[in-house]
Design a protein around this nucleic acid. Structure first.
Lengths: 221, 221
DNA sequence: ATAAATATTTAGGTTTACCTAAATTAAATT
DNA sequence: AATTTAATTTAGGTAAACCTAAATATTTAT
């Protein structure tokens, strides 16, 4: 019930991340996320299904079961606690901590993690501002929403982009949008779903519906 | 040159430990140490030979090459630094740290380990009293000898037991010997190799040759 | 509604690190 | 020295987690 291989953990974590609520995750999405071929994804999905960690029917995408979600939360807890440790105690910069935490997170002793949590003073957020699940897997409901769901004139901060393709990053760079950028929705056009968004203090740019759906923000304050 | 699988690292570490100087290590010794069948040891030795990490000729045992020794020192450095961290910062007891460090040691980022070393204040010994190699792989020549090699009436401290079986630990407990116990050889009997040893300040106990061979001590001072 | 394009799965192969059983070599005993 | 015993290696097999190429579903476009 509680012991998974490194690979299994990476799959669970990736599905957790891509699910973003109740969405079903596709083979190709996971394939891109994990840089593994689609055929490998199918293999692993069958395995995780027999372990009752995902709901999966051929051709219909997959979602974590309650148990899979719980496992995912524990992996994320480990990951974020190590990130906090690396940044706070070992003075790594925030862009260095992720890949080291990717390795440390697979040491799965519960006692180790709970003691690490205590040593760190029970931190609530990792260095990227993401909330850290507690020892029971409880995690602060993130006030994170897609840019498309942001109310007019409410200031928010970009905290996540769900597509990491280079074409998407190029477009974001061009519009001067990055993680941490302050944004505010100024106008929404019914015809094509595009929107005018104030970026930073000076400029306002137009963003397509497709792009907005992939940008996640957190309300300020 | 510098990246090994978890299995390879475990083999290198085990050979390093068993070599204890220049002795050549046998297939069966490694098999016992790693709880793998002799055939598996032969497989891996061939692999490590092609990677130039061990000297190995069929039926003749093996020794680490200079490069293998260097790799071994780095693994031991990681292991002992994590042990120190677990004991000193997370307050694990000395008998809990070993198996956790077995997992953490395989995260091989040099920068991580050097920063951890700095964070811990460049400790010289792990919680079991074994010296920690520095960032260049330099390690304090341990003045560690088997109890059988201790001269008469020279005070020393138990720093290592090479067999960790529960039957051995039971016997040690019974004789009130643990890591850190002060001992002094009082008399040696040629007939069976047994010896009288003063343990601590009050009592003297008789120890069999077999037991003495598995107890390592460090001269005091 | 069909055809073309795309997504997913199946079938069969590879590598790593194990295993068992059998063969071979070395060491110990008579 | 010959034989028995023990250690080691070889041969061939397995499971995990990947892969490629081909087959099959599904979606999209005409």
């Amino acid at each position: 019930m509680l012991n998974f291989s490194v690979s299994e953990e990476n799959y669970i974590k990736a599905i957790f991340r891509l699910q973003h609520g109740d969405n079903t995750v596709t083979t190709n999405e996971l394939s891109a996320e994990l840089r593994a071929k689609p055929a490998s994804i199918t293999d692993m999905m069958k395995k995780l299904r027999t372990k009752k960690l995902v709901h999966y029917e051929a051709y219909k995408g997959f979602r974590l079961t309650a148990e899979g979600r719980k496992a995912g939360l524990m992996i994320i807890r480990r990951h974020r606690l190590w990130e906090f440790f690396l940044s706070e105690k070992l003075k790594f910069t925030w862009d260095e901590v992720h890949e080291l935490a990717e390795e440390l997170e697979h040491v799965s002793s519960k006692k180790l993690i709970d003691k690490l949590d205590e040593f760190l003073g029970f931190p609530r957020y990792d260095p990227h501002g993401d909330p850290i699940p507690d020892a029971n897997g409880k995690i602060e409901a993130s006030r994170q929403v897609a840019l498309t769901a942001l109310p007019l004139n409410k200031s928010a901060t970009v905290c996540h982009v769900s597509d990491q393709s280079s074409s998407m990053l190029e477009l974001l760079g061009h519009k001067k949008i990055a993680i941490g950028t302050r944004v505010e929705l100024k106008k929404q056009f019914d015809f094509d779903g595009s929107m005018d968004v104030r970026v930073g203090r000076q400029q306002t740019v137009n963003i397509s519906k497709q792009l907005a759906q992939n940008i996640y923000v957190k309300y300020d304050g």
